[in-house]
Design a protein around this nucleic acid. Sequence first.
DNA 1: CGGTTCATTGACGCCAATCAAAAAACGTGG
DNA 2: CCACGTTTTTTGATTGGCGTCAATGAACCG
Lengths: 251, 251
Amino acid sequence: MQDQANLERLFNRMEERRPLTAAQKAELQRVASPPIVVPAKTDYVLEGARPSKSSLLLSGFACRYTLMPDGRRQITAIHVPGDFVDLHSLPLEVMDHTVASLTDCQFSAADHRDLMRIISNDPDLALGLWRLTLLDGALHREWIVAFAMNAVEHLAHLLCELFVRLKVVGLTDGASFEFPVTQEVLAETLGLSPVHVNRTLQDLRSNHLISFDRGRVSILDWTGLREVGKFDATHLHLGKHRDLAAMIPTS
Amino acid sequence: MQDQANLERLFNRMEERRPLTAAQKAELQRVASPPIVVPAKTDYVLEGARPSKSSLLLSGFACRYTLMPDGRRQITAIHVPGDFVDLHSLPLEVMDHTVASLTDCQFSAADHRDLMRIISNDPDLALGLWRLTLLDGALHREWIVAFAMNAVEHLAHLLCELFVRLKVVGLTDGASFEFPVTQEVLAETLGLSPVHVNRTLQDLRSNHLISFDRGRVSILDWTGLREVGKFDATHLHLGKHRDLAAMIPTS
DNA sequence: CGGTTCATTGACGCCAATCAAAAAACGTGG
DNA sequence: CCACGTTTTTTGATTGGCGTCAATGAACCG
């Protein structure tokens, strides 16, 4: 059992709104492969592919991105442990973007035939999986809104979002969390130049809202950061952790 | 039967990848309400609501938007006939944004209990509905990428996307289509100021890529517009109409 | 026909891109 | 543990895209 994938973070997320039965958890556990290790900065699912399985991120950070004709990379989603990174390929079949690791990652994969069997036999679980893919959509919409903000607001918004999502899966430590990515990755996420990301980070730091050092983000002023980033957790569709976004974390 | 909703445009979209059976079409038809008329510029589903039904757009243009704290409205999606505008509220339950009409619209609504029954009894149809919501997500991602472009490219991209989507549901006329919205709506969509949208339209016009007059968009140079907008239809997940994005429409 | 909405134009300012270079952190092998 | 090349962060100077403000003109509508 040592190499069995730990699905607790997925269960955390799925049980935000209603609990899973022991049988449902067992069924998901049954179709989850042992951990797959992927080093940092590696494409994991390619645009144009037709995956025969879908992968759950167990540890590390991953992203989805589209390569633009001029060679720039635009990141459209950042994934944290507990996220399915390509569950949408089950109904959509063809990948319209690439999934890559940002840090060293572990994934667990579930065969599409197994997943199809699950959704045929258990409409309740089917709805839960559907719901997970819709949470991605809700995040996409929020990112669109964030793109209409200026650089400082956009960055603050992103950090708020990551903090809450990581908190849900138990990956925060007080008011801080590990986020070992370069400023270039932030630039590709925010659609800014790396230089401007640097200046924007300095802005947030000089206003004592955050510190960001050696891959660790510490939120020094949660209320202030939320305000700057116009962050509203409605789109995260939290249930159990509903009050989490309002809370002021202690350091 | 005169007041029965015409679901052909929905069927068009759902049959991109695989045909629906007559029984499936009949089942969808059975749960679809008669047309609901909504005047232009009217909120139709409010943020925070818990819809008990989901609505299909039969005619007109609608959008989803989020109101920002400073009163600005950011549009996150534009809907064309054949689109479900809030099908995601079935698994997600709570609306995280508002749906509004842009023009006079007609909707047909399906009760969530009926839809739940369908997805429980027909996994195939469930997958088809799931797929529709994922197409929205794919569009969201493409919009994020488009936000990393400059104003001219972004606008060109949007017009390309609308053209192809309208073509799929038979709402184009040669190389042109009706799109009776103000430049302010475009501004709210692109995250630009109305003034700059005006200048950007003039740019496209002066390069003989489009004309846009009295609510009708005509594409004068499809190849050129696609190139400027870096438009790639992969994310539309077309099946039957796969070659549509590459085709040069005749006027 | 008159009021209202919408499209257009010009002047000016600011936010973020770009270019270039230096400093700091990191990784690796000796 | 230090030396070294590489990656990443930081800084400065300049440019350009888009926002803002304000006003005019055109289209629409009852």
